[in-house]
Amino acid sequence: MDDELLGGHLQELRRGTVVLACLATLEHPRYGYALLETLDAAGFAVDGNTLYPLLRRLEKQGLLTSEWNTDEARPRKFYRTSAEGAQLRTRLMTEWRSLDSAIEGLDGETP
Rank of each mutant, 00 (worst) to 15 (best):
Q61A: 08
S98Y: 07
R30E: 03
H28Q: 15
S98A: 10
L99I: 11
L5K: 10
I103V: 11
L58K: 07
R76T: 06
L13N: 06
A24I: 00
L58A: 00
L6Y: 02
Q61R: 12
P75V: 05
L5T: 11
R76K: 15
L13F: 14
A34V: 11
A86G: 09
W68G: 09
D2A: 06
L106A: 14
Q61D: 13
L13E: 15
L26A: 04
E37K: 07
L26R: 01
H28I: 14
G62L: 03
L10P: 04
D2H: 00
A73I: 08
P53Q: 06
R30Y: 10
C22S: 04
E37A: 10
Y79V: 03
A42E: 10
D71Y: 12
L20I: 09
H28F: 12
G8A: 03
A45T: 13
S66L: 03
H9F: 14
G7S: 10
G16H: 05
L55D: 06
T17Y: 12
L5G: 08
R56G: 07
D3H: 15
L99G: 06
G108T: 15
I103W: 11
L6M: 05
C22T: 08
R80T: 12
H9Q: 15
L88W: 06
R80A: 06
Q87M: 07
T110F: 14
Q87G: 03
S101I: 13
V19E: 13
M1T: 07
D47Y: 15
A86N: 02
G32S: 05
E59W: 01
N69G: 01
